[in-house]
Amino acid sequence: MSLLELHTRSLELAAGLVDTVQPEQLVLPTPCTGWSLRRLLEHVVGQHRGFAAAARGAGPDLALWRDVPVEGDPAGAFRRSAAQLTAAFTGASAAPGGSVLWLPEIRDGGPLPLDLAVGFHLLDTLVHAWDVAAALGPSTASGIVTAVEAEPPLVGALLAVAEAVPAAPANRGPGRAFDVVGSPDTAAGPFARALVLLGRDPAWSTPER
């Protein structure tokens, strides 16, 4: 499968998970410190729109990346914005001579080659899908890990991008996209290894109230 096809598959898996979210669950905490499930989904939809705008040739305008309210229909907001992103990436891939994207939230803002941008968003999609699943409960988190690891090209792409994310202290921690790299477990599967590389705790679960 091409990288674009793997990216589309990552969105399909994430959308199926978001479809299960109930309104009363939007207040649940997530592995993203300080973010409720609602805030996480608003961020995800905003990222869909930001990447789509970049793929259509927008410049480094942070306003295009703002969070988008999902109250009342998080699944619909996710699927609509994901479809727009898929169409934008597909269009950019057909551009003569290749495309570059301005991504104001990544590195120095760009420009970056399309394949690199698609890889970044594939990682973002699968890791945030795990964040959603972890908020919903351990069995749901285990389910998304199993589903991704059942598709070696997909989990391989996730791990490859995770390994390429800069791990220097200046690039990690509060205010950054990812926390410091955790302690690896040599017995862990590829999804868990990717989470650790990005500063996530694969064993995270909703705190007891």
Rank of each mutant, 00 (worst) to 15 (best):
M1D: 14
S2F: 06
H7N: 04
T8A: 15
R9G: 11
S10P: 00
V18M: 04
Q22E: 14
Q22P: 02
P23E: 14
P29H: 11
T30H: 06
T33R: 12
T33L: 14
T33I: 03
G34F: 01
G34N: 02
W35E: 05
L37A: 06
L37P: 09
R38I: 04
L41W: 10
E42D: 07
H43W: 00
V44I: 03
V44W: 09
V45F: 12
H48Y: 10
A52W: 09
A55Y: 13
G59N: 08
P60K: 09
L62N: 05
R66N: 12
R66P: 00
V68F: 07
P69M: 13
A75C: 07
R80Y: 03
S81K: 00
S81Y: 02
S81H: 00
A82E: 00
Q84G: 06
A87I: 07
F89L: 15
F89D: 01
T90K: 07
A94V: 06
S99F: 09
S99D: 10
V100N: 02
L101G: 00
L103A: 05
L112S: 02
D115K: 10
L116F: 14
L126C: 05
V127W: 07
H128G: 14
H128I: 11
W130S: 09
D131M: 08
V132G: 07
V132Y: 00
L136R: 13
S142W: 01
V145L: 08
V148G: 01
E149I: 07
P153L: 03
V155Q: 02
G156H: 03
A157Y: 14
A157I: 06
L158Q: 12
L159V: 13
A160W: 11
A160D: 10
A162H: 01
V165R: 12
P166R: 12
A177M: 05
D179V: 04
P184D: 02
P184I: 01
G189F: 01
G189H: 09
F191S: 09
R193F: 04
G199E: 08
P202C: 00
P202R: 00
E208D: 14
